[in-house]
Design a protein around this nucleic acid. Sequence first.
DNA 1: AGTTATTTTTAGATTGGGCTAAATTTATTG
DNA 2: CAATAAATTTAGCCCAATCTAAAAATAACT
Lengths: 220, 220
Amino acid sequence: MHLSNTEENYLKAIYKIAERKNKSASTNTIAKYIGTAPASVTDMLKRLAGKQMINYERYKGVTLTTIGGREATQLIRRHRLWEVFLASRLRFSWEAVHDIAEELEHIKSEELVNRLDAYLDYPKFDPHGDPIPNAQGKFTLRNQMSLSAALPGNKVVLLGVREHETSFLEYLNELNIGLGTEFTIKAFNNFDKSMNILVDHNKETLLSEKVCQILLVKKI
Amino acid sequence: MHLSNTEENYLKAIYKIAERKNKSASTNTIAKYIGTAPASVTDMLKRLAGKQMINYERYKGVTLTTIGGREATQLIRRHRLWEVFLASRLRFSWEAVHDIAEELEHIKSEELVNRLDAYLDYPKFDPHGDPIPNAQGKFTLRNQMSLSAALPGNKVVLLGVREHETSFLEYLNELNIGLGTEFTIKAFNNFDKSMNILVDHNKETLLSEKVCQILLVKKI
DNA sequence: AGTTATTTTTAGATTGGGCTAAATTTATTG
DNA sequence: CAATAAATTTAGCCCAATCTAAAAATAACT
């Protein structure tokens, strides 16, 4: 089944929304995610339903079919493998890789993505710590938790971020925080749920509740 | 100036046609090259003229403007750099790289192509021996001639091919001929302009006139 | 040079992907 | 539970890129 870039983007959006909300995706949510008018989404949903990619019933949300889910997973695989290539081989920073990978992910060649995977030594995680599905679509799981769930005194290492926006990643750069950075939780401030952390044994930094929720860590 | 993939492909076609014929490109020629109806070409030519990419006058052919030529050259640069990446890093065969590079060449990021160039060590020629323009659009020239122009007794090395079609390249593979292959011209057959050549000091092979014209060699 | 053939352009239609405005269905709430 | 609000869909439109068929301009030939 041939899919256009746009159709693929809708499938990816539905996948990510469903993953987050753990259920079906609504027209409005998709519209916001993609950045189009809800009416355009309705049109596209009909088309994707016709291609057996989604389960669509008027006024209910949509879910991916088995093949729709497979397409979405492969798209995520391609996206994240290209991100690894851009960061590890071409030395792009982690905030620059997303936009370019958005284009590269649509290159249609099974052979290409599998050779790229091998060339990169079958990476399991991308530069933001997101898991890369293998050729069979299987994701690697690992123990990780939101920083919000850590307690004062805990020493943790950063495994991933739930937000890929450039400005946010640049903010982390300024704080000297990147994947693999280790830090200690000095204090939890109950009134605004912010945290004081110690990076590199010398800089004490305040992280807002929002940032704590975005950071994915593991206790060490 | 933003160009769609389609517009870029038209510019590339005009560039290649003009390069070959050494003059302006006609509507019909472009239509044949792109694989569309002449009427579609006319529409597109008007649009490209509006974007100052070509010089267009009804019923005359078209030529690229300075900026149109620069766009075409950059597209060729991207195409050939990706071909090098696919062949040298991902180990694709020389007949497989063209189609994938046709997609990759449209990824829009100046930074990407320049980093790729550096990563590949600023290659000067692609896997078919075609020159790769540098960031300033300058092509590397070298001494080469069509095999047709070589004489019996000459020993030559293959530098490039003027035809990228898969079936032709696979034919050369079967003959154990690739870039860098050295061979000696044993005989020139005047009646059909074919040549007998000796590859690897053991296989004597007959090459048709057409093939001789396509192969680009240098005397050694 | 005049007629025919070829090339190119115009006219009008189609498809994918998008929009706004209006209508309809579902959800919320006094 | 009726009225209002929010979400969704329909209707009708637009643009890019394509097509076919017909008209117009250029080229070729007797």
